[in-house]
């Protein structure tokens, strides 16, 4: 059991820089698409249906790959680097917005730095090198493996993060009542659990077969947001 490690990594206070990102909420608020709690609820349902399955499945698949490597240290480095590289390329092909690719890699880089220092491991070094960092789900999967968590737990943290990032941004952007926002998250908990379980269940599949849900406005508003001169959140 690694209950405390699980809570540490899921905690919004884990120093991975996630608080700098609104996951598209800032752009949705600026466009007038989200103005109140009901709008936030619709936004979060969309994030949970579209972004979370992809993020959680890539996190879980990375975790599974890393955990297998940890159990079988005799496997050569290239055995492991190939699936990591394949996960990286498949996720890259699912992230059509260059602004979102950069946001994912910057968050991955920050998470990797925090992970390396919190749960030192040789696993981190197996991730494919990229000047902007590894994609966030890959960094999360490896960190979860280094922390000794299960594949299911890694997927749960990923899905949970998809919800809590924009939810806490909403309090700052819209001045929503934090109690009501927490109540909303509690109401969505069951749906979040289901998405996480479904993601963990496909973690063993080949990277090509992992979910590829696209949300047009996520890409479009990320690109619009990237052109702003002044913004509160990085994405």
């Amino acid at each position: 059991m690694h209950r405390t490690a699980y809570l540490l990594l899921a905690d919004g206070r884990f120093p991975s820089g996630g608080h700098a990102h609104s996951s598209g909420l800032e752009a949705a608020v600026a466009a007038g698409r989200v103005t109140d709690l009901a709008g936030l609820e619709a936004f979060l349902h969309g994030r949970l249906s579209y972004a979370a399955p992809v993020t959680a499945a890539f996190t879980a698949a990375t975790h599974l790959t890393a955990a297998r490597m940890g159990r079988a240290p005799s496997s050569t480095e290239s055995d492991v680097k190939v699936p990591f590289l394949s996960l990286d390329r498949e996720l890259e092909a699912r992230t059509v917005s260059p602004a979102l690719r950069l946001a994912s890699r910057r968050q991955g880089r920050a998470l990797l730095r925090a992970g390396r220092n919190t749960w030192p491991s040789e696993l981190y070094g197996q991730l494919p090198k990229h000047p902007d960092g590894p994609h966030q789900p890959l960094a999360l999967g490896v960190t979860a493996a280094a922390a000794g968590l299960s594949t299911e737990e890694s997927a749960q943290i990923a899905a949970y993060g998809v919800l809590t990032g924009p939810a806490s941004a909403a309090v700052r952007l819209l001045g929503l009542d934090p109690y009501q926002v927490q109540h909303l998250l509690a109401r969505m908990a069951g749906a979040c659990d289901e998405i996480a379980a479904a993601a963990a269940a496909v973690a063993h599949k080949s990277p090509q077969e992992l979910p590829a849900h696209a949300a047009p406005l996520a890409d479009i508003s990320a690109e619009l947001h990237a052109t702003w001169e002044v913004r509160l959140f990085a994405s």
Partner: peptide, 20 residues
């Protein structure tokens, strides 16, 4: 790799994060 799902079977499909 893109898969776009629409319709009543998917919560949030026409909401502000997807199609607005």
């Amino acid at each position: 790799r893109q898969s776009l799902t629409i319709g009543p079977g998917t919560p949030g499909w026409d909401g502000p994060a997807v199609l607005g």
